[in-house]
Nucleic acid binder design. Structure first.
Lengths: 186, 186
DNA sequence: TACTCCCTATCTATCGATAGGTAGGCAATG
DNA sequence: CATTGCCTACCTATCGATAGATAGGGAGTA
């Protein structure tokens, strides 16, 4: 794949994580990587195409990271790694999960982007569910799925609220409480 | 206060809850309530002024509702009422908490709007904290504050994720799990 | 009463900036 | 000589904001 295409995706991801899909601008991206906005249209005919590929790549790379994480020895340690990703985004100039911020913009997303955002959620919930299998064997399957949804939602929420205050320690405090109350295995 | 001013605020709130601060447009609001965009500038000189007043009113009305709720007999029932507000927004055409969606847009908000969004969070956390006082007397004050932050964040997150899927039952499933794991008193 | 003055609330018209998107050309590569 | 990749130059639409005009209403005054 061409360097330019990769540069577009990288700059676009960074921009969306910082300011959302709506604030994503072909001209801004072009300025950042040193090409004209028309050239970006060559690689991604429409903004929806770019947004969809962005979310697709994000999910794929997230999945790759989580698959690695699954191999770690401690089951609880898995969650440490998971929680760290979301914390990292905040540390990186108060950014958010790409799909979290896009979920807030749901109403303005082209359909093709919307489905990719859904896939990201599905991927995360499925991974969490599989992690819970060994940790909470006493839960019935449907309760385990609900728990996976709850954990994902709670983490996204902690990130959202912490971002709203530009204070990553609010994320830490929420997570600590999630673990103290055993929503998240500790 | 004039009818027009009230109509502007109502239409703007509805628009922001549906599509966010960035998507808020003077022309759209004007079209909806039957005045020109210039007339809206008469009542709110800048977009930031409108956004700030929007958040200020939202917080004030939320606080009034919560103060009523505090008087209810059952402590756990208080939380039912609290959870219901956030669910209502989803039922209302997949809308979000005004300050939740604005938190996602933090980076683009004028400073005057940002501080109002923070005040909303503070107000909610303070209310939750006071509710927890009687329910979890065994918690130390700082742990109780953390718990209040966690509950608020978890609820905002459940709303965000459910909205991203346009599926309010995802909110219900997350909340059910929050209560099953005792993050939220049940 | 009638006239003056100002305030309120709205209008039309326009500004510069920026958005996504398109047409057509030019240079390099194979 | 066709394809790839980028360019210049442009279009239409929309944004927040401003200027200037106007209609109506109240308060003060001759």
């Amino acid at each position: 794949m061409s360097d330019t295409r990769q540069a577009i995706l990288a700059a676009a991801r960074s921009a969306v994580q910082a300011r959302g899909y709506n604030a994503l601008s072909f001209r801004e991206i072009g300025k950042e990587i040193g090409v004209k906005s028309a050239s970006i249209h060559y690689h991604f005919p429409t903004k929806g195409d770019l947004g969809a590929e962005l979310a697709r790549d994000y999910t794929a790379q997230g999945k790759a990271y989580l698959d690695e994480l699954s191999a770690c020895d401690s089951a609880v340690g898995c969650f440490d790694g998971y929680l760290a990703i979301f914390r990292k985004a905040l540390e990186d100039d108060n950014r958010m999960c790409l799909c979290g911020i896009m979920a807030a913009e749901q109403h303005d997303l082209p359909e093709q982007v919307r489905v990719e955002v859904s896939r990201f959620t599905d991927m995360n919930v499925a991974w969490l569910e599989s992690r819970l299998e060994s940790l909470l064997p006493e839960l019935r399957a449907d309760a385990r799925l609900d728990r996976a949804i709850a954990i994902f939602a709670a983490i996204e929420g902690a990130q959202l609220v912490a971002r709203g205050r530009s204070d990553a320690t609010m994320y830490d405090r929420a997570i600590q409480s999630y673990r103290a109350s055993r929503l998240i295995p500790a």
